[in-house]
Amino acid sequence: MAFQPSKSKKNHAKEEGSLNMNSMMDMMTIILLFLLKSFSTEGALVTPSQQLRLPVSDQELKPKKELTVSIAKDVLMVNDAVIMSVSDIEKNQMLIPSLADRLSDYAAQEHELEVDVGKEFTHEVIIEGDEKIPFELLFKVMFTCSKTEFYKMRLLTIRKG
């Protein structure tokens, strides 16, 4: 025979459970504050990849958005458009012709803008180099930049800490 259902338990009112949200709210508030602090309106300046790992430094200077020349392990890019493969760079020539062409185009554009709408040509260029690239390559790129009117160079690095 089955047990008789308990008569005393039947009368117990069902306890209504409610989720305690206080601690969750605390957590959310902290996360929100933390994220607000690290919020940047600049947007991503550089897309990190296996081929482009920036060197580490302890400089404090903040980067501004400018024309970027990226030297990855395999390719050379201007404003994220691939110019040429690193292996195609002439060994015995200081100037990199295709990079120089592209940079002169940008310089000409900037000059036009300066005349037409008064936007000042800053001559600034950001060089993003992979931490492993040899000095020779870096120097060639810097030489090419300075030859094409972009003589205010900024080396992009990752801040320590």
């Binding site: 404090e60 903040k62 205010k152 801040r159």
Partner: peptide, 28 residues
């Protein structure tokens, strides 16, 4: 808000080193 801020967060802090080469031929 939280997903929005995560998307806009600055995960790597970048910095720059300034090199001002005189406009003349000093870089060569």
């Amino acid at each position: 808000l939280i997903p929005l801020l995560i998307a806009g967060a600055e995960w790597v802090k970048l910095s720059v080193i300034e090199i001002n080469v005189p406009p003349a031929k000093a870089a060569d």
